[in-house]
Design a protein around this nucleic acid. Sequence first.
DNA 1: CATTTTCCTGATTAAGTAATCAGATTTTAT
DNA 2: ATAAAATCTGATTACTTAATCAGGAAAATG
Lengths: 206, 206
Amino acid sequence: MDNNKNTFIQEARKQQIIEATIATLDDIGYVKASLAQIAKRASISTALISYHFVDRQDLINQSLQALIEQSTTFILTKTYTASDPVTQLANFIEASIAYQATHPKENAALLEIVFNARTAHDIPYYKLPDEEEDPLLTALCNILEDGKKQGTFSVRSVNVMAKVIQGAIGEYMLIGGPLAIAAEDYSLEVTNIIWTAMKVEGPKNA
Amino acid sequence: MDNNKNTFIQEARKQQIIEATIATLDDIGYVKASLAQIAKRASISTALISYHFVDRQDLINQSLQALIEQSTTFILTKTYTASDPVTQLANFIEASIAYQATHPKENAALLEIVFNARTAHDIPYYKLPDEEEDPLLTALCNILEDGKKQGTFSVRSVNVMAKVIQGAIGEYMLIGGPLAIAAEDYSLEVTNIIWTAMKVEGPKNA
DNA sequence: CATTTTCCTGATTAAGTAATCAGATTTTAT
DNA sequence: ATAAAATCTGATTACTTAATCAGGAAAATG
């Protein structure tokens, strides 16, 4: 019965190590994020990491999975507070950009992994053809399809429009220095551009 | 006088090492791209790299500079074959996407460096506030400003529109697997979306 | 309370890293 | 041709890495 507590302790420790991994990735980047650096930040020995994770790769993969789950939940929860495609899309854009602004460390760690990690065959993660399984892209395409079917969105290619929207969202974090814009303002501008591009008639299309 | 030949040999060797660096980055990624791996691909000793470059960092930086120069020249040359903002923008989008399709290795190497390299103070290159000096972004904003002034482009925020366009371009390389689209088709779709978003009346806005 | 299982550490291992250096080879200059 | 300067290599340096291992500490179990 107290098997649960074993599991509890183990899971708590794993969670702690994953959080230390995220902090380390944000601090010093993927290249320097050694087990020693991660252990230091978690105030444990490096051997303990090896005890809970089979590999460094395993640790990175589990951290990535946690990061993806967190951001996906955040965004999709806010997206589906509405039932009509127009509001859903507005929510999606706003939530995606807001996540970057409110979770900068998690966002930085996610980037570090996606753009640094490679498979055993040296294929970069960002080139992996997992698009089919990306729940964010799937949700985005579904919303666009819905709006298109009910005649609200004027779209030629749903896939390309989805990519344009994703690109606009992803670009927000690269805005630095003199061009810096508040997340809300950027969301508003992007939404407006997308509305115009899809000829949406609505309250937000001022 | 034959001082020139010294310079010539030296520059040729440096160029060869930079090309080997690009090939290595594309092959096995930034993390595994050690001096030994680069030397192997250039069929030289590792010490020779140290002879021509002060640092590994120095080698990476010079490779990055070469990659940026190459892509910038490619894109801006094609962009400015036209004099009107509409064609310039169409050229810019098409050339940017075409470069990724025709120079996949250079493009991959560029990504590896930008998303992996950090300054001595651990600031990632992609967060550096060099936007002001990015000639591509500058050119894009200028084109948008021109079109706006002459009444061809309907844009609220030039900066945000530029980011949306950059995002759409950058997203192309992330399209893999079942959603893969030919560069020309993607360019066409993106251009069409941007035209609609800016209410451009023209031959391409079918 | 004793014992077994889980959890954890310090020390060690083998491999790989960037950089240096003495000296060989090639090129250039006289 | 010969001396000087450049280009280049193999070996070595000091260091960091991921992973393992023997055994200690803590917790759960009977």
